[in-house]
């Protein structure tokens, strides 16, 4: 069973809010000083899903792909340390500032070049922009099915059964392979890399593919060719007013709270 896992390196979501800043004029996030980027927290779950499926099948190759600067190699190395087989870094100066459409297009071209696998797995969203649209874009461009926000996956003979997370519960769907599946945190804890795997991963070569090696049309990539226009980027101001609900007894306080909530049309 051959699987492609797409991973992304993101600013550490644990960065304190006080150190988060944006350049409103340039419409970009200013990286927090001294805090290294990390692998997107949902992506190890996608890698974990790939490892379990490969190991259950007893054969196959897991190829990890990441689009980003040279430091994104660390996100690939993490997946290799978990047990993935091969890594490809998609890196080119023109990839900076691209939109989700271009990301999906570059990933789809890469996957075609690698050879369409049985399954393509990604995290449910990247923790930086939290949009979760790239899996759908890649599936669209490869003309294969896409199932998002998976909590469990089971591969059959040419098909896959996915338990999806909904706002108010779960649903189970089935589709044909090859397919794209985005994996949610409900899938379960990813394994910790073993020291031996870390050492093997360190020795593995991560191929770097740029715009030319992918044969991309220069007019299709780059921040000047975005289809998604970023109108404004700012940190919203959060204002909170605290009102202590008065009352002589817990019952009266609860009643007064309920009245306030009704007044505000919240209940």
């Amino acid at each position: 069973m051959n699987i492609v896992v797409c991973v992304k390196q993101v600013p550490d979501p644990e960065t304190p809010a006080s150190q988060f800043a944006v350049d409103e004029a340039a419409k970009r996030v200013i990286p927090a000083q001294g805090i290294a980027p990390v692998v997107n927290p949902y992506d190890p779950q996608a890698t974990e899903a790939a490892l379990r499926l490969r190991d259950a099948a007893g054969e196959g190759t897991i190829t990890v792909i990441s689009l980003g600067p040279d430091s994104a190699r660390d996100a690939i190395k993490h997946a290799l340390a978990m047990g993935a087989d091969e890594g490809i870094l998609l890196s080119d100066p023109s990839f900076e500032g691209i939109d989700n459409f271009q990301t999906a297009a570059i990933l789809a071209e890469t996957i075609k070049k690698v050879g369409i696998p049985d399954l393509i797995l990604m995290g449910r969203a990247a923790a930086d922009w939290d949009m979760g649209v790239v899996p759908i874009g890649v599936a669209q461009l490869l003309d294969i099915p896409c199932v998002t926000v998976a909590k469990a996956v089971e591969v059959g003979d040419g098909n896959i059964t996915v338990e999806r997370v909904l706002d108010d519960g779960f649903e189970t769907v089935e589709t044909t392979l090859p397919a794209v599946v985005s994996v949610s945190n409900e899938f379960g804890e990813p394994r910790y890399p073993q020291l031996r795997q870390i050492m093997l991963a360190a020795k593995k070569n991560v191929e770097v593919w740029d715009k030319e090696s992918l044969g991309l049309d220069p007019a299709s990539v780059g921040s000047d060719n975005r289809l998604l226009a970023l109108e404004a980027l700012y940190v919203p101001k959060v204002e909170s007013n605290v009102e202590v609900i008065q009352g002589d007894s817990p019952e009266e306080k609860a009643r007064n709270l309920a009245l306030k909530l009704r007044e505000a049309k919240l209940i």
Partner: peptide, 23 residues
């Protein structure tokens, strides 16, 4: 606050190992 578990470690493999143990 994220911290660099492997600060001051020079060997890349050691860095990777220590980071993972720190996590």
């Amino acid at each position: 606050m994220p911290r660099d578990h492997a600060a001051d470690i020079l060997d890349p493999i050691a860095k990777e190992v220590v980071n993972n143990v720190g996590v």
